[in-house]
Simulated assay, not measured.
Amino acid sequence: MLVVDDNKVIRQLIRVNLELEGLEVVTASDGAECLDVVHQVRPDLVTLDVVMPRLDGFGTAARLRADPRTRDLPLVVISACTQYEVEAGLEVGIDAFLPKPFDPAELVSVVRALVERGQGVGEDGAAGGVVRSGLGAGPERGSGLELGTGAVIGAGKGGGPSGGAAAGE
């Protein structure tokens, strides 16, 4: 995993929550650093903040989608997104949105679902939908991630206990 956020505390909270699940995590402080690092570490997934110096999350996503080596890499935005930002993210190919503050269990669930999808889970190998978790009202399309197994993930705040750390803005 590659975690990209200009806030060091948020980067570390995301990293810790994913590492507690046994995932290997590398971090970058903005989109420009992400583009420098992504080809070296070849992550299974990238999490992006939207507002970052040098290159924001959507600009980073657009560049990752334009590169044949990273165009299919799952991208998750972790940010306090407005509806406009969600729509802009969909246009550049963001796969999932998690609001800040994020629920650690939901973070892990979304990341695992997208990584499994990228590894061919599902009968048709189709891209599925878009995870839109805890973002309030919006268009019906993309209200969950279809895994080809009948499971839909991200249709609202996940319940249940979490052993991870939570993050705010």
Rank of each mutant, 00 (worst) to 15 (best):
D103F: 06
E140V: 11
A113P: 08
A113C: 02
E146H: 13
V92H: 07
V121L: 14
V92I: 02
T149Q: 15
S133R: 11
G138W: 03
G120N: 06
L98T: 00
G118Q: 00
G128D: 03
G125K: 08
V130P: 06
K100R: 15
L107T: 11
Q119N: 14
D95W: 12
E123S: 03
G118E: 06
A127E: 13
E116H: 10
L114I: 05
P99Q: 02
S143A: 06
G89W: 03
E140L: 14
G122D: 07
L98P: 03
G138R: 09
G122A: 04
V121A: 12
V108D: 05
V131I: 14
E116N: 12
V115D: 12
G138E: 07
L98N: 02
G128F: 00
P139S: 15
V121H: 10
G125M: 14
R141T: 14
A151N: 13
A126P: 08
V92K: 01
R141H: 13
G134C: 12
G150Q: 00
E106D: 06
V115N: 11
S109R: 12
G118F: 05
E140N: 01
F102Y: 02
F102W: 03
G125V: 05
F102I: 02
E123D: 08
S133C: 09
V111Q: 01
D103R: 10
P99R: 11
E116R: 14
R117H: 13
T149L: 11
E116Y: 10
V121G: 04
D95T: 11
V110K: 05
G122N: 02
E91A: 14
R132A: 00
L145R: 08
D103Q: 03
A126I: 09
G142V: 08
V130W: 13
L147E: 01
L107I: 05
G128W: 04
G138Y: 07
L98Q: 03
G134R: 05
L145M: 15
L107R: 12
V115H: 11
L147D: 12
G122H: 05
R117F: 07
A96I: 08
G138D: 05
A151D: 15
